[in-house]
Simulated scan of single mutants.
Amino acid sequence: MKLRLHFVVDPMGWLCISIVFGIWLYNTFFIPKLVLLPHYNEGHIPWVTVVCYYISSALCIAALFRASTADPGRLPVDPHIPHSEREHWELCNKCNLMRPKRSHHCSRCGHCVRRMDHHCPWINNCVGEDNHWLFLQLCFYAQVLSLFTLVLDFCQYYYFQPLTGLDQEKFTTRHELALLRVSALMGVVMFGGMTSLFYTQMTGILSDTTTIEKMAQFSNEVYGSKRSWQWALAEVCGTRWKLLWLIPLRSRQPLQASHHFRTHV
């Protein structure tokens, strides 16, 4: 699968993703400027901490970009339906096009998406078969970056030694009481929201049930299946190599079923 860009024309979605990008930019700029780099220059923290923060920040923005611009699994106008799979296709009553079962029509995007989980305004895109793994990565790296930010904000108040090369009165009134407190507030909100969303997504993946199916009260007897967590995540991410599950800058290929991988935990 090629890395095709997919953009949704939705002003509300643009506003939501701009807010997410603004929060990322705020913490990526101010935390190194006020905490990481000054304390590193004075020898209070090791260089590994600075590198890890920038790596988590880079992975977070890469996952956001990929999740918002990747094709979620949009169905073509005239899809090729193999004769052996015709019984697994159905007619969409909104766009009058044939689609595989478990596909859904997104009223915001105006087309059907294969195995659509939900439409997320915060990435201005649907979450479907082809970009679900990217959305999962975004939730994970947003948790990591938010937690990292909260720890650094806490250490700035209660653990790190005072900076000798800085006007403490000016720093306290203009930075600690404003910028870092705003950063901590955003970190709490993002970490709490992303943790809840990540847990919901993982339970859906492991039970083989999408968010739309949960809302429609479909039971596991209809669509769910007994399978190992390894196979469930490998199927979503498109690879059995666990290290690649964490890398957003790659393409996804549909995974062929393996009986051994399904049953072995």
Rank of each mutant, 00 (worst) to 15 (best):
N93S: 15
R115Q: 11
L185Y: 11
L145I: 13
H119T: 12
Y223G: 00
D130S: 14
V188N: 00
R174I: 06
L244I: 03
C120G: 10
N131I: 08
S196C: 09
M215L: 12
L145E: 03
Y199A: 01
V9W: 07
P32S: 11
E213Y: 09
F30M: 12
H264K: 06
Q230V: 11
I19T: 11
R74F: 02
F218Y: 08
N131K: 06
T211D: 03
L37M: 15
S103F: 04
C52H: 05
A178C: 11
C52M: 14
H44N: 12
R227F: 02
M202L: 13
C109N: 04
N125H: 04
V182R: 03
C126L: 12
V144P: 01
F29G: 03
Q201F: 07
V20H: 01
H80A: 12
A234R: 00
Q230N: 14
I45D: 03
R250D: 01
N220L: 04
R66H: 11
M194A: 13
I247Y: 09
H39Y: 05
N96R: 12
L97Y: 04
T200C: 05
L3S: 12
R181H: 14
G165C: 13
I212P: 00
M98D: 11
T210M: 04
Y199G: 00
R227E: 08
L197A: 14
F148L: 09
